Simulated scan of single mutants.
Amino acid sequence: MKIERYSAWELDHSAPITPQVTRILRERVIKNDLKPGDRISESEVASTYDVSRQPVREAFIKLADQGLLEIRPQRGTIVTRIGYFAVLDARFLREAIEADICKILADARSPDLIAELRAQLARQNALDRQDADGFIQLDDLFHRTLAEAAGKAGAWRQIEGLKSQMDRVRYLSLGEFRVDTLIAQHCAVVDRIEAGDIAGANSAIRFHLREVLKDLPQIIEANARFFDLPDGDMPPPVNAPIQGGTIA
């Protein structure tokens, strides 16, 4: 397929090229600008961004390791379909990590953190409800802030690498995004952290991170050709029960 140039995805040629090409292509796959099944080539990408093929080849390898590209020797490179189990596994691991992060924060009860999170919630509420892409960026900022405040910035970087498939699902569901519901869930997390309610913070973040599972069957039905389902069917996700605390 022909790769168009987007101003938001242009390179800074004074900075290292491989990380930029990797980031740009990753974003384009996640945002479904490059769709599952699309074919891309080193030469096209190199020409589009006016770079040599070596950094593009390295970017392809990194993205293949993340499950976003499939490199087929002698047959080209394609954007992978979204793996159903990859989505569930990423969400499961993210829940486990962020639940512990919220327990740490509820135990510490930092007024500065609460002030920052309340300011972020105000920005989320002020956002145009049709700007789902903008909300996803604010949502990522919210969760990254939690991780960094708990001293787990490294864990967040691991989460970012894991959640690529989840993010592809989120961008497929932009038209169905329940922003008000997600903001209310963010508020519940902040309330429980501010109250020092360790069990409640754990419960609130787990409840929030399971929201994607509610819409997953409908998203798959509407975009079946983009998904890799086990034996062509969709088994129900399996979750551990949410333990302890109440969500106000």
Rank of each mutant, 00 (worst) to 15 (best):
W156G: 00
T246C: 04
G175T: 01
Q137C: 03
I24H: 01
I40L: 09
D167Y: 11
F142S: 01
K31F: 01
Y6M: 11
H186S: 05
D231S: 09
A240S: 08
F135W: 13
T80Y: 08
N32Y: 06
Q130R: 13
V79F: 13
A201C: 00
G175S: 02
A153H: 08
R170L: 10
G245T: 10
L216G: 10
L172W: 01
L229H: 07
A15L: 15
A222E: 12
V179M: 15
T77H: 03
Q185V: 08
L138T: 08
L93K: 14
R57F: 04
R75H: 15
I82C: 03
D139L: 02
K103T: 01
D233K: 15
G134E: 03
N239E: 15
P73A: 08
L172F: 00
R57L: 05
L121Q: 09
Q218A: 15
Y6I: 14
R206Q: 15
P36K: 14
G200S: 10
I220N: 04
A188Y: 11
L229C: 06
P236S: 08
N223V: 00
K31N: 02
P230I: 04
A224S: 13
Y6H: 13
R91W: 04
F92T: 13
P217I: 10
D231K: 09
R210M: 07
A155Q: 13
I247F: 04
L216H: 12
K2L: 01
